Amino acid sequence: MLRIIYYTKQNCSLCDNARALLGMLQNEYAFDIEERDIYTNDDWLEKYQLLIPCVQIGDMYLDCEHMDLPHLEQAIQAYSQTT
């Protein structure tokens, strides 16, 4: 099953919106979401601090600039076709 890694932090309205989009897409596509709070790991904090919300789907990353329903769905579909 597809696993999406979702980088987030607490008290982030953009992150809440992205999580809601992922939840909507789970109704159409089979995937698990692994949430990672960037404040629990120094490497994640350094790498994603200015990019959250950020998701990793396979080897593809979508950051806050591309965190919308069309981009997420396209990434999920693209990854699903390669596996």
Rank of each mutant, 00 (worst) to 15 (best):
D42I: 10
A75E: 05
G58C: 08
R36C: 09
I76F: 00
Y48L: 02
L72V: 03
L25C: 01
Y39I: 10
Y6F: 13
L21E: 12
E35P: 00
T83M: 07
A18F: 01
T82I: 14
L14N: 09
R36E: 05
L45Y: 15
Q10L: 04
A75M: 02
G58T: 10
I76T: 07
S13Y: 09
T83C: 06
Q49M: 07
Q81S: 11
Y79T: 10
Y29F: 15
C15E: 00
R36V: 07
E46N: 06
T8A: 08
M60V: 14
N17Q: 14
N27S: 14
M67I: 11
L62N: 03
I5A: 08
Y48C: 06
N27A: 08
E35K: 15
E28M: 11
Q10D: 06
H66I: 03
L14V: 04
Q49C: 11
Y29C: 13
L69K: 15
D43S: 14
K47L: 09
D42F: 05
I57T: 07
I4G: 00
F31P: 04
I5F: 04
I38A: 02
Y61F: 11
T8E: 03
N17L: 11
Q56M: 09
A75V: 07
D68M: 13
N27Q: 15
V55D: 07
D63T: 09
L2S: 07
Q74T: 09
I38W: 06
E28I: 05
E65W: 08
E46Y: 04
I5C: 05
V55M: 00
K47P: 10
M24W: 06
Q74I: 05
T83K: 13
D37C: 01
M24Q: 15
P53F: 11
Y48K: 04
M60C: 15
L62Y: 01
R3Y: 08
I5R: 14
Y48D: 11
L22T: 08
A20K: 14
L25G: 01
L21K: 12
A20D: 14
W44A: 02
V55T: 07
Y61I: 05
M60S: 12
Q77I: 12
Q77A: 12
E73V: 00
T83V: 15
I38E: 09
L69F: 06
Y39V: 13
A18I: 02
K9Y: 01
Q81I: 06
D42L: 02
A18L: 00
D43W: 03
E46A: 06
A75R: 04
H66P: 06
L62S: 04
D43T: 15
C15K: 10
T82D: 11
E34G: 03
P53M: 00
K9P: 00
I38F: 04
Q81E: 14
Y61H: 10
G23R: 05
P53H: 06
N11S: 13
D68T: 12
Q26I: 01
C15I: 05
L69T: 08
Q26N: 02
H71G: 07
M60I: 13
I52D: 06
L2G: 07
G23I: 01
M24S: 10
L14T: 13
A20P: 02
Y6G: 01
L69I: 06
I33T: 05
Y39C: 05
L62W: 00
L50G: 02
V55R: 02
M24H: 10
L72K: 12
D59Y: 03
Q49Y: 12
Y29N: 03
C64T: 15
V55N: 04
A78H: 13
Y6L: 02
Y39A: 03
L69M: 08
D32N: 14
H66T: 13
